[in-house]
């Protein structure tokens, strides 16, 4: 290991709080002690990451308040130092961490809100793809329908939410006072996406969630219709399924209608 590498490893471990080996390496002056000089870096490190997490998880930060949120940050920062070259990706395991770390693990809305906010971020700067327009559906011959498959926006995110975390995030975004966390009867399906520059999210009923997930798994329109038998009378299926397609296209979710087998 080079001398530079040794020195940098020591410095980094000191900043991370793992050891304190820098005393021998650093010049003290009358005005400023070595401890203080190191603390400037160590404190800046934690502050910068905490600020980043406050931004990435703005609703969770508002919900928990400074003290509780920063306490969670401290634990997370110690457990997960950053690795990515961009600080934008810091906090990618925040939800998972909160899910498994007491006392947050006892309040599942914490990890659920974190997961929801992270997915919003992923939608924010995901790759742009041109959505198809409804005209493209109209141009299909009836014989092409059963075999068609869809491709979806790279920004599209699905999440299951048991708590009212979407409402909490909405309230924070709009500067309203937030409701206290409330648990629903069962997990509900939510869809997150971006249309041009604006992020959207909405809940899905069970049927649409099932169909959307299958369609994203490359099921054909025919296969979707077959599966929908379980949910509704046969005579309603074709209209319902076509309606879903139009809705998805209208929401800008679909980037390609593929008709070749």
């Amino acid at each position: 290991m080079s001398r530079l590498h040794i020195l940098q490893s020591k410095f980094q471990r000191t900043i991370l709080g793992a050891e304190d080996m820098l005393e021998k390496e650093i010049v003290a002056t009358e005005r400023l002690s070595v401890d203080r000089r190191i603390a400037i870096y160590a404190e800046a490190y934690r502050l910068r990451l905490t600020e980043c997490l406050r931004e990435n998880y703005s609703a969770l930060y508002t919900l928990l308040g400074d003290e509780q949120f920063d306490a969670l940050c401290r634990l997370y920062i110690d457990a997960h130092p950053p690795h990515h070259y961009s600080i934008r990706w810091y906090g990618d395991r925040f939800a998972e961490f909160a899910r498994h770390t007491a006392p947050y693990s006892g309040h599942p809305y914490v990890s659920e809100l974190a997961e929801f906010e992270w997915k919003l971020m992923e939608a924010f700067d995901a790759r742009d793809a041109r959505p198809v327009v409804l005209d493209e559906l109209a141009q299909l011959a009836p014989s092409q329908w059963p075999g068609l498959r869809l491709e979806f926006q790279p920004c599209l995110q699905r999440v299951e939410l048991t708590w009212n975390v979407a409402a909490i995030r909405n309230a924070v975004d709009e500067g309203r006072t937030i409701d206290s966390p409330q648990r629903g009867d069962r997990p509900a399906a939510w869809l997150i996406w971006r249309k041009r520059l604006t992020q959207y999210f909405r809940s899905l009923d069970d049927t649409e969630a099932w169909a959307l997930d299958r369609a994203r798994d490359r099921a054909t329109f025919g296969e979707l219709c077959e599966g929908l038998c379980e949910w509704m009378p046969d005579r309603e299926i074709a209209t319902y399924a076509a309606g879903l397609l139009k809705q998805w296209i209208g929401d800008g979710l679909v980037t390609k209608i593929q008709t070749d087998p």
Partner: peptide, 25 residues
């Protein structure tokens, strides 16, 4: 500067030792 080592990124502009070795490296 350097910003981290051993795969970590501290996201800060960390100071270097001003040595001949560091100059050539």
């Amino acid at each position: 500067c350097w910003t981290g080592v051993d795969g970590t990124n501290i996201h800060d502009l960390l100071p270097l030792p001003y040595t001949e070795d560091a100059v050539s490296y």
